[in-house]
Design a protein around this nucleic acid. Structure first.
Lengths: 251, 251
DNA sequence: TTTAGATTCATTCAAAAAAAATCAAAGAAA
DNA sequence: TTTCTTTGATTTTTTTTGAATGAATCTAAA
């Protein structure tokens, strides 16, 4: 069977059921787990489905209305990430000049954006395409595009940011710690984040509680540089160093 | 059996089933694997099907034509466009620094690119993503993103091009005329084209024969600025003004 | 909240499948 | 005949696949 045929079957199943597990697909396609995973990665990279832990979900299902079938079983972090994203989106005001960092956390924000008078700048390819498709004023930062990432990186990207003065910026992070601030494993992405955050009048970090007290090789900003939006603050000491916005599940 | 007969059978099977494997065709045509592969390569190069690992897919179901806005335009002259695109791609040499303009015509070029030592810069989102996915050195120009064409435009895009010196540039156009040169209906896209073409040591326009003797509101370059790659030159007078490369339906 | 155990995931590697390149034979054209 | 093209077989190279490993993530129980 051609790879293209497998893709079609996967997408067809997703269209009907909205979510599917890797095991389901192994049985439906009579192929190995490795192949299914590779197919999902390919389809995810080309934006035709959304890969989640345990399987995949249909791309058209937006996060606010998504059935918690798989996510309920696999933990509610997806739910909480959506809450954080919604809160972040609500902070955007009329005529804001907004920077949205590449990454899955910030990608969730796009579903909740309402402010059409604002201008949005991003280094995420998917972000830019979706923003434009939704009719927002969308700008993409120029620069190198690596195969693995969906983000524009490199010195051109850094230079391209020099003349922007964002009123608000929204970022993802891998680690947060008091001493090492916000950190990420990728040097090239870190540099872009540093430059972007430096051009934001107000910067927000979107981070669920699992990100706290973790340190990665590259620090891209000090803890005091940005307001943190999180679902749950377990370690109160962070309040001494920066503003924390806590979003709760209620209603 | 004549080669043309085999082509017809292959295309007919594809029309019905949308995808076909090499083995299927060996049985259907009662010929060797080598011949089937050669046939598929020929049909792929002339844009009549899309070759994939293990077989081929019909050109209309292939994901390269996924973008709905772009499919509409594709229609009739797909074959000629593929020939033009292949010729254009073959002009790229080692270590070239290549600009590829956004648009459907240039998008087809990507299927025929081989030169991995070259660096590719584009203002087309889809182009950039695919170049990166194929493992080429890919850069995207920064700027405003127009939803309908997935092209980056505006003054940022123009500025972002200031420091590039391309060895070769490939462009689409809506109209060609001796007096008005190469023209397009969209002012904002025209400005980007003008700037890009000015930074190319050598510029090529990819245009099928329907584009000649048409004039659109915005001229983005004079007729002498670029070499034209076309399928058929009906009006010989153009040869007096610039270089024309004519590609034919060879075998 | 922490910890242990179970899933799931990305990566690596070798085997299998497929594609491309090479070459000689058969046919067609000159 | 001689030359050129097409075809099929053979080989070399590339791509895909599936299994194995260890890392990461999730779940449940303490």
């Amino acid at each position: 069977m051609l790879a293209e045929n497998r893709y079609e079957i996967i997408l067809k199943i997703l269209e009907e059921k909205k979510t599917v597990t890797v095991l389901d697909l192994v049985q439906a396609l009579h192929t190995s787990e490795s192949t299914v995973r590779r197919d999902l990665t390919t389809l995810h990279n080309s934006g035709r489905l959304y890969k989640v832990y345990g399987g995949a979900t249909s791309i058209t299902t937006n996060y606010s209305t998504r059935e918690p079938d798989m996510t309920a079983k696999k933990g509610l972090s997806a739910r909480e990430k959506a809450l954080i994203a919604r809160k972040a989106a609500s902070l955007i005001a009329r005529n804001d000049f907004v920077y949205i960092d590449a990454g899955t956390t910030t990608l969730l924000m796009l579903d909740f954006l309402r402010e059409t008078s604002a201008t949005y700048v991003t280094n995420g390819i998917t972000h830019a395409v979706r923003l434009a498709a939704k009719g927002f004023h969308a700008y993409i930062i120029g620069g190198e595009l690596k195969a693995s990432t969906e983000a524009v990186i490199g010195s051109e990207a850094v230079n391209g940011m020099k003349f922007y003065n964002f009123t608000k910026g929204f970022f993802g992070t891998n680690g947060i710690s008091v001493k090492s601030g916000f950190s990420t494993p990728e040097p090239v992405e870190g540099i872009v984040k540093t430059e972007a955050i430096a051009h934001c009048k107000k910067a927000y970090i979107l981070a669920d509680d699992s990100k706290f007290n973790k340190i990665y090789p590259i620090t891209f900003a000090n803890i005091s540089c940005a307001t943190i939006i999180t679902n749950r603050l377990t370690d109160r000491k962070y309040r001494d160093y920066t503003t924390i916005i806590e979003v709760n599940e209620e209603k």
